[in-house]
Simulated scan of single mutants.
Amino acid sequence: MKKILAFGASSSKTSINKQLATYAANQFENATVEILDLNDYEMPIYSMDKESATGIPQLAQDFYAKIGNSDLIIISFAEHNGAYSTAFKNIFDWTSRINGKTFQEKEMLLLSTSPGPRGGATVLEIAKGRFPFQGGVVKGSFSLPNFSANFDSEKGITNPELHRELMKIVMLFKKMSPLN
C-alpha cells in the first residue's frame, strides 16, 4: 500500500487549502493518507545565525522524515501576497538546510485554491517552477477558483467541470505510478 502525505500550505486552523489537499488525497483508494497540519511544525523564523547557534530544529527533521516516508506528496498552496504563506516558507527554508533536494525525488501533486477567481494560480506557478530544483517530481497540478462557490465540506468539489478536471489528474497519477 502506497503512502500519501498531504497538507495545506497554510497555518489557518480553517484552511481551505488543507480541505482541498485532504479531499484530493482521499481520491486515491487503497493508499494510506497522512494529513499534516503546519501548526504542528512551528519553528523560529529561519536565519543562518539561528542555524549556527542552535542547529536545525527537530521539527524540521521530523517534517523532512515525513516526506522521505511517503510515496506521493499532495500540497495545496495558500497564496499570501502572490507567494507562499510564511508558515510554509519557514518550514521549507529549514528543511532545505537538511538537504537541498527537500522533496527527495518524490512524486507531487500541487494544488491551490482561494476565495477569488484565480484560485491561487500565482503561487501554484511559483511552486511548479521551483520544486523540481528541490527534488520534487511534479506530475500534476490543479487550481480551484472561488473556493466557497465550488467546494462543499461534505461533497468536495461541487462544480462538475472542475471535479472532472481534478479526477482526470488523479487518474493520470494512477496510470503513471499506480498507487493502488
Rank of each mutant, 00 (worst) to 15 (best):
G55W: 14
S76T: 05
G140A: 04
L20T: 09
D93L: 06
A87M: 11
E34Q: 15
F7I: 04
L72Y: 13
A24M: 12
S153D: 14
M43D: 10
Y41G: 06
D37K: 07
E42I: 13
G116H: 05
K50S: 12
E79V: 04
S12N: 13
A121M: 08
A21K: 06
I35H: 11
N146T: 14
F142R: 04
Q58A: 15
F142P: 05
L38C: 10
F133D: 10
D93A: 01
A121E: 13
S10H: 08
N90W: 08
T113D: 00
S114I: 04
E29D: 15
E51V: 07
N90P: 06
T54I: 13
A25R: 09
L144I: 12
L179P: 01
L179T: 01
T54M: 11
Q19V: 02
L72R: 09
T122E: 11
S12L: 01
V137M: 11
G116E: 09
G68S: 07
N30E: 14
I98K: 00
T86W: 10
G116N: 08
P145Y: 02
T122K: 14
S141M: 01
E161P: 00
N81R: 09
L109G: 00
M167C: 01
I16A: 00
H163I: 00
G120A: 05
L111N: 02
M108F: 05
G119I: 08
L124R: 13
T86H: 05
G136S: 08
G55H: 04
L20P: 02
I75V: 15
K50N: 14
G68E: 12
D40I: 06
Q61K: 15
I45E: 01
Q134C: 15
T14D: 14
L20E: 06
E51F: 11
E42Q: 15
G136V: 08
N81L: 06
N90Q: 03
V33H: 06
K3R: 15
S47A: 08
P132K: 00
I98Y: 04
Q104F: 08
A9H: 10
I16Q: 12
Y41K: 11
T113Q: 01
L36V: 12
P115Q: 09
D49G: 08
E161Y: 05
N17K: 08
F88P: 02
A78C: 02
Q104V: 01
P57F: 07
L36Y: 04
M43A: 12
Q19S: 11
L5C: 10
